[in-house]
Structures are given as C-alpha cells and as structure tokens.
Simulated scan of single mutants.
Amino acid sequence: MKKCKICGSVTTQIIKTKNQKKYHKCPTCSYIFLDEIFYVDEVREKQHYDKHDNNLESLGYVKMFEDLIEEFVMPYKKEIKSAFDFGCGEGKVLPILLQREGIVCDGYDLFYFPKKVYKDKKYNLVVSTEVFEHLQNPLEVLQELLLHVEKNGYLLLMTAFRPADDEEFLEWWYIRDITHIGFFNLQTFEYLAAKLGLVIIKHNFKNKVLFQKREV
C-alpha cells in the first residue's frame, strides 16, 4: 500500500472497474490520489490545457473569478495590497481582474508563464485556482507557496471537494479529466491547516477555501 502524499499514513486502494484506474485513499486526512501509473506526461498535459478557452472573452470563466473575488477577496481587501496567482493559465485572467480592483498581482504558470517572478517576494494573498488537483506533490508545493505569504496574509485555494462516498467518488465527473490526479475535501484542508500553522477563515463547502497564515 502507498503512503499518503499529505500526511504519510498508509492508504487503502479503490478501483474504478470500468477502466481499472487505481486510487489511494487516506484514512487520516481523507486525501485521494491517482496511482502514478495512470499519470499523463507533460506533453499530453500541455495539449489538454491548450484546448481550454480561458481568457477574458470567455464570459463564464470570467464570471467564475468575479464571484471568487467578490466572496473571498473583497471582504479582506483592506489587508490585501499584493497578490500572486500560482497557475494563472494562458490568459492571466485572475491577475487582470485583481488589478482592476487595485490589487497588484503577479502570475506564474508552469506551461505558459514559467518565469518564477515570485522568487524572493512575499504577498498579502496567494491564490491558486483549479491547480492543486493536478499536482503530484501538493504538500511540497503548498509549503513552498507559504514561504511567499506575509505574516497574517491569506492563501486562497479553489479545487472541487471530493464526495465522501467511494462509489460516488468513482462516478464523479471531476476524476474524468486525465490531468486530475489528487482530490481533497474539507477534512484534508483542516489537516493541512493544523500541520502548517494556518487557520481556515472561510470556505463554501464545495470548492473554495481561504486560509490565513498565523505565525508565533
């Protein structure tokens, strides 16, 4: 059995009969991850992302970010002067929308904007939307991102919270994406908060969670 990539506990295996895809489920933090033999390579991953129409002309995509900003950023705007979007995508839509609200925002994307502009910088807000489900080592990435969050700053993550029931999970639309390899729920984020010195300020029970970084 494989160890959990979040907490190191021994996982149990669940299998989707239709395609024999294997997933590893953690009994401690509730994280589920796809077995590595089913990962796609970076070429196929990039080809998959290139099909997305994620730009300012995509009204639904823009509305998703406008709603995110309204609910999870604007209530804390007085404390947020600088932001960083990790995994900003080809269109850099979220940085543009945040800048319209007076928040200076850097963007990084492994495939489209690979220059690490965040190096040696800290921000009041670090955002990562629809990224963490793609990561092979989410804990390592999260720990790195937190190095760039100011004390009492915020970390905002957006990724669909997985169903609790195994059978429901195996029929869940979110796992059909060939680039989705890791799946979280609120219990996973609560574990991460306790482990990394974070406090969950707000979540929507569905796909968004806002942490505040607290340091002694």
Rank of each mutant, 00 (worst) to 15 (best):
I175C: 04
A160P: 10
L186A: 13
D177H: 08
N152Q: 09
F183Y: 11
Y154G: 07
T179M: 12
P163A: 10
D177P: 04
F161D: 02
D177Q: 11
F169A: 04
L155E: 00
E168F: 11
A160T: 10
A164N: 15
Q187W: 13
F169L: 04
I175L: 10
F184C: 06
I175E: 03
T179I: 14
G182I: 01
L155S: 08
I175T: 02
A160H: 15
D165G: 04
L170H: 05
I178T: 13
E171W: 07
L157F: 15
D165I: 11
L170Y: 04
D165E: 12
L170T: 01
G153L: 02
P163G: 08
T159R: 09
L170N: 02
W173F: 12
M158A: 07
F161E: 01
D166M: 10
D177F: 11
L157A: 08
L186P: 09
Y154F: 15
W172K: 01
W173E: 10
I178G: 06
D165T: 06
F161G: 03
L156A: 06
F183S: 00
Y174G: 01
G182C: 11
F183A: 01
E168L: 14
Y174K: 05
Q187G: 13
F161K: 06
H180E: 12
F184T: 04
F169G: 00
Y174W: 06
Q187S: 15
N152D: 14
N185G: 05
N152M: 13
D165M: 11
I175N: 02
R162Q: 15
D177A: 05
L157S: 04
W172V: 00
L170S: 03
L156T: 04
R176Q: 14
N185A: 07
E171Y: 12
Y154T: 03
M158V: 05
L155N: 08
L156E: 04
N152V: 06
P163V: 07
Y154Q: 02
A164R: 15
E168G: 12
M158S: 08
W172Q: 00
W173Y: 06
G153A: 07
N152L: 06
E171I: 13
W173M: 07
P163C: 06
L170K: 03
F161H: 09
T179A: 13
A164S: 14
F169Y: 05
L186W: 03
F169W: 09
M158H: 06
L157Y: 09
N152K: 09
G182S: 11
H180P: 07
L156N: 01
Q187P: 12
F169Q: 00
F183R: 05
L156H: 07
T179P: 14
N152Y: 12
I181A: 00
I178L: 04
W172D: 01
T179N: 15
T188G: 02
Q187H: 14
T188D: 05
E171T: 14
I175H: 09
F184I: 05
E167F: 04
I175W: 08
L155V: 09
N152S: 13
T188L: 05
F184Y: 03
H180Q: 14
I178W: 03
